[in-house]
Write a protein that binds this DNA or RNA. Structure first.
Lengths: 232, 232
DNA sequence: CCAAAAGTGTTGGGAATACACCCATGC
DNA sequence: GCATGGGTGTATTCCCAACACTTTTGG
């Protein structure tokens, strides 16, 4: 192998909100190095393959994940000794899946709440940290929540989803108003039936778009009335 | 060369505010492909070299840039045919230099205002666009302006710097108040001498820190009084 | 005194959190 | 009727753009 030529892997940080906790998909290693530790799903980049496609392919192969609602590139790690066996560059992807379809997982693969991560192989723990930061930030200024929520949902369910992903309590009252004003969510004509204990039926909402949209553009120091206009 | 093994280059998007315009450092190609078009400085990753160090090394070699005030990874491009000769992955870096030391440039290298880019080779034009977006966003919620401003400066000078980088007019009045309130800039005890036409002497300011600091954390949906606390 | 440039005081609008209150259902 | 959960109205706070006004210099 020529000296200025490297293997390159795509890693997926797959987040799903499960049982009101943000969880990440991990695979347990059966061999050294890091035997018994947990690693992010992923694998080597092939010739004529793009990194995003490679991440998607490995996730589909490893965990039979039915549908990834959102996939975006995070960062590339290049420490020459991040893999002690051989140099491998790694490009990490943030992948979000909705709580609907539960994939059948191989025996070595499981969901782990991000608050209770097991020992992780390589630099994967810090990659998960980066992914979490990215998710937290984008929840604040985009509609990225669509990729963590089911097709329709009540505001209470959405509050639990946001609270799990953000890591702090969220007010259902304000969540509804802010996301509605921004045009991120909209009510459907359906309502839920209340539980046996009673209570008012909840309106079902949906996301207005299931594509990533920036709803809160960075606008510091911009004069009024120049919403998107630039002097380009 | 094994089929799952790739060359990898580091590219630098070097921004500097020159003559009140945001400009990027480009090199003109002397050979095909894209002969005569302009490209970002950069070059191949070496064994035992990290990507950030590689970007810095190529910038130092190409343009003798004395000091890069800020360097951060942008994104990795992996289109198999982004280079028509051979597959090369590219990781782009955002590099900011202060208007002080003017590097001596080779004959094929020059600064170009980002509003009037010449024809660009490969996917470099879109990479410059990504870099610009990143810079615009970070100016809004971090102290990244330190990397585009000289050691000390008047508010008017800083306004021109921000206006150039953001691409829209900026109010000196509000810029001073906001950055002071956030603790990003602070006055020195020095003042400038007014021009021959008169005017009040301007206070010289400096950035409180010359390391990247997030001053405006994403805090949507967070209850008051939980500034940084998370339920982790 | 006047022009020019810098800096401060003040106002108004918009957005977000907090909280009180009303609504609709099951038992 | 009452408990339970859903939704709305309203107050308060904070941030920031806008603009008038004051300060400090040179001629």
């Amino acid at each position: 192998m020529p000296p200025d030529c490297f293997r390159h892997e795509a890693l997926g940080v797959v987040f799903q909100v499960r049982d009101k906790r943000l969880s990440v998909l991990l695979c347990q290693r059966a061999e050294p190095p890091f035997e018994g530790a947990w690693m992010l799903p992923g694998g080597l980049l092939l010739a004529d393959e793009r990194l995003g496609a490679s991440a998607g392919r490995h996730l589909a192969a490893k965990a039979d994940i039915p549908e990834i609602a959102h996939l975006e590139q995070l960062e590339t790690r290049s420490d020459p000794v991040r893999d002690p066996r051989e140099r491998v560059l790694a490009t990490a992807y943030l992948a979000l899946v909705t709580p609907g379809a539960r994939a059948r997982l191989p025996a070595d693969t499981a969901w782990h709440p991000v608050d209770e991560l097991p020992p992780c192989a390589f630099d994967h723990r810090s990659i998960i940290g980066s992914a979490r930061e990215r998710l937290r930030a984008k929840l604040s200024y985009t509609n990225i929540g669509f990729a963590l929520a089911p097709e329709t949902f009540t505001i209470s369910q959405l509050r639990d989803t946001y609270a799990a992903a953000l890591g702090h309590p969220v007010s259902a009252t304000n969540l509804q108003r802010i996301l509605t004003r921004r045009g991120v969510i909209e009510p459907t004509s359906d309502v839920t039936r209340p539980a046996a204990s009673g209570g008012r039926p909840a309106t079902l909402y949906r996301f207005a778009s299931r594509e990533l949209v920036v709803t809160n553009p960075f606008a510091a120091f911009r004069p009024r009335g120049t919403a998107g206009a630039l002097t380009v």
